[in-house]
Computed example of a mutant assay.
Amino acid sequence: MSHPYAKNKTDLLTRLRRIEGQVRGVQKMIEEDRYCVELLTQLAAIKNATHKVALSILDAHTRGCVADAIHHRASENEKIDELMEVIRQFTKG
């Protein structure tokens, strides 16, 4: 079964590898006792990068899985409820 995000799989994996590198960089910065603001700046960049990956997958899910369920009236409310729960998770802060 192919998921809607599969068409962007290469881009998503590239972004995630970059995030992985950023996390390793922060680990090294902590080992080196770097200044707090430098760490926080890098952590903010990681947060933003993961948010962009998540939004890309959320977009694919909405345009793929949710739209398909609505179009075919198959578990339409279930998919919308599922989507709303994911959106709630993103807006918790």
Score class of each variant (00 low, 15 high):
1 M>W: 14
1 M>S: 15
2 S>M: 13
3 H>S: 12
3 H>R: 10
3 H>D: 08
3 H>T: 09
4 P>I: 09
5 Y>N: 06
5 Y>K: 12
6 A>N: 15
6 A>L: 13
7 K>Q: 15
7 K>S: 14
7 K>V: 15
7 K>C: 11
8 N>E: 15
9 K>T: 05
9 K>R: 15
10 T>Y: 01
11 D>K: 10
12 L>S: 03
15 R>T: 00
15 R>M: 00
16 L>G: 00
17 R>W: 01
17 R>V: 00
17 R>S: 11
17 R>G: 09
18 R>N: 09
19 I>F: 01
22 Q>S: 09
22 Q>G: 04
22 Q>P: 05
23 V>H: 00
23 V>R: 00
24 R>C: 03
25 G>M: 05
25 G>N: 05
26 V>M: 03
26 V>G: 04
27 Q>I: 03
28 K>L: 12
28 K>S: 10
29 M>G: 04
29 M>Q: 13
29 M>W: 13
30 I>R: 05
31 E>H: 12
31 E>C: 06
32 E>C: 06
36 C>F: 11
36 C>E: 12
36 C>K: 08
36 C>D: 10
38 E>F: 07
38 E>Q: 10
38 E>C: 07
39 L>Y: 03
39 L>K: 10
40 L>Y: 06
41 T>C: 03
41 T>Y: 06
42 Q>E: 02
45 A>S: 02
46 I>E: 02
46 I>G: 01
47 K>I: 02
49 A>L: 00
49 A>G: 02
49 A>S: 08
50 T>D: 00
52 K>C: 03
53 V>E: 02
53 V>R: 01
54 A>K: 06
55 L>I: 02
56 S>A: 06
57 I>C: 01
57 I>R: 01
57 I>T: 06
58 L>A: 08
58 L>S: 02
58 L>Y: 03
59 D>C: 08
59 D>E: 15
60 A>G: 04
60 A>Q: 03
60 A>R: 07
61 H>K: 10
61 H>P: 01
61 H>I: 01
62 T>E: 05
63 R>L: 09
64 G>A: 07
64 G>K: 05
64 G>V: 06
64 G>F: 06
65 C>G: 04
66 V>Y: 05
66 V>H: 05
67 A>E: 13
68 D>Y: 08
70 I>V: 15
70 I>T: 03
71 H>N: 11
71 H>G: 13
72 H>N: 15
72 H>P: 01
72 H>S: 14
73 R>N: 14
73 R>I: 08
74 A>D: 14
75 S>H: 14
76 E>Q: 14
76 E>N: 07
78 E>I: 08
80 I>P: 05
81 D>K: 12
81 D>M: 13
84 M>R: 10
85 E>T: 12
89 Q>V: 11
89 Q>C: 06
90 F>W: 10
91 T>I: 12
91 T>H: 13
92 K>F: 05
92 K>C: 03
93 G>L: 10
